[in-house]
Nucleic acid binder design. Structure first.
Lengths: 195, 195
DNA sequence: TGACTCATGTAAGGCGTTACATGATTTT
DNA sequence: AAAATCATGTAACGCCTTACATGAGTCA
């Protein structure tokens, strides 16, 4: 069986603040974005379910007249239950490492590009997390912010680890390339020696 | 659209060595396990597809009489194409961080358990990677091993980052707990001062 | 012989994304 | 008035896992 953690994310987000489905998605993208994601196709059916079970209710209204969803007390209790359940780790799938593992067929240069891209992404993420960190420092939710900072810190550690690894890997790949390992099937380039 | 990277994993694994479907799964679990996973339900249909497209072929036979799958030259070419395609990163979903983000409703102690579990997992992974590393050093596939070591190194960096983060997080959570933040709804414990 | 491993598949179903459809409200 | 954004959904489809079904060979 797979995740079923969408409810946790939705109830959790609504526990911070009542929101419309649309705002919920934005909040998940922007605030949980570095470790979680949900799509409309998940959010709306889940909200409908939760409403029928009496875990959330509509409260009018935003400026447009549409209604925001808020946790009921049953919903708040259910959230605590869900949070206490052991986290389901979905099986690892890292496309970069998959390619790198078979990197011999690709050649050191193409692999280096792959690694450099990963490094760039990590660098951008680090920058994004820095902004989030200052945002969190200025938030009004003082009781929540220590926990939020924990998740930001996790992202930062992971990103810095990626960068450090990438630098090592790029060095390794450079020496591989210099030693004349072309991609699979290519004859070694004859390094002409100076007379 | 989602992954479609099963073919890459299957063709890649067969590029190292011809195998039966069963052995393929074992190989993916044991060797790619720390960054990739496939289930039987994916592997066999994929093998059937690839065979029909002439990218792999059956060659007899293991000791049991059943036949191993091997790459054709078309298959080898196709693998290079697939490897050159940009890696699809599937959206992040970290159950631990999801729970931690809403950790206020859970309380510092329960959160600390969560983090400690994550730390333990990382520690075990680090140990596993150490064995893999020595295995890889002794492999006959000298041309492949530099790339394999790159993926192992990535895992080690990630695991060490998790451990470092966990230690920080545990310290933070300890002070939160000491400051008397029980879980959501619980009154703060009155710390009696010594006269 | 019975239990275990190797080996190959199929079926059902959950999870999740993308694309489509629709309309109100706000901004330019 | 047109464009952009906010807002709510549905439908189709793909990916992937789990469980089931089956059988051959191996070892105690």
């Amino acid at each position: 069986m797979r995740a079923r953690q969408t409810r946790t994310a939705v109830l959790g987000a609504l526990s911070i603040q009542p929101m419309t489905g649309y705002a919920l998605r934005e909040a998940i993208r922007e605030t949980l974005g570095h470790f979680w994601s949900e799509s409309f196709g998940q959010i709306y059916p889940t909200l409908a379910e939760l409403e029928q079970e009496g875990l959330v209710e509509r409260r009018g209204g935003t400026r447009t007249g549409s209604s925001a969803f808020a946790l009921t007390s049953a919903g708040r209790a259910h959230l605590r239950t869900l949070l206490a359940e052991p986290p389901q780790a979905d099986p690892p799938r890292n496309g970069v490492l998959l390619r790198l593992f078979f990197g011999r067929a690709l050649g050191p240069e193409a692999c280096a590009e792959l690694v450099q891209d990963a490094r760039d992404r990590a660098e951008r993420q680090l920058a994004g997390l820095a902004t989030e960190r200052t945002d969190t420092d200025h938030t009004e939710h003082a009781d929540d912010s220590p926990y939020w900072l924990l998740t930001i810190s996790a992202g930062e550690h992971a990103a810095r680890a990626t960068i450090a690894w990438a630098d090592e890997a790029l060095a390794t790949l450079a020496t591989l390339a210099a030693d004349g390992h072309g991609h699979d099937g290519e004859p070694p380039t004859s390094t002409k020696e100076t007379p």
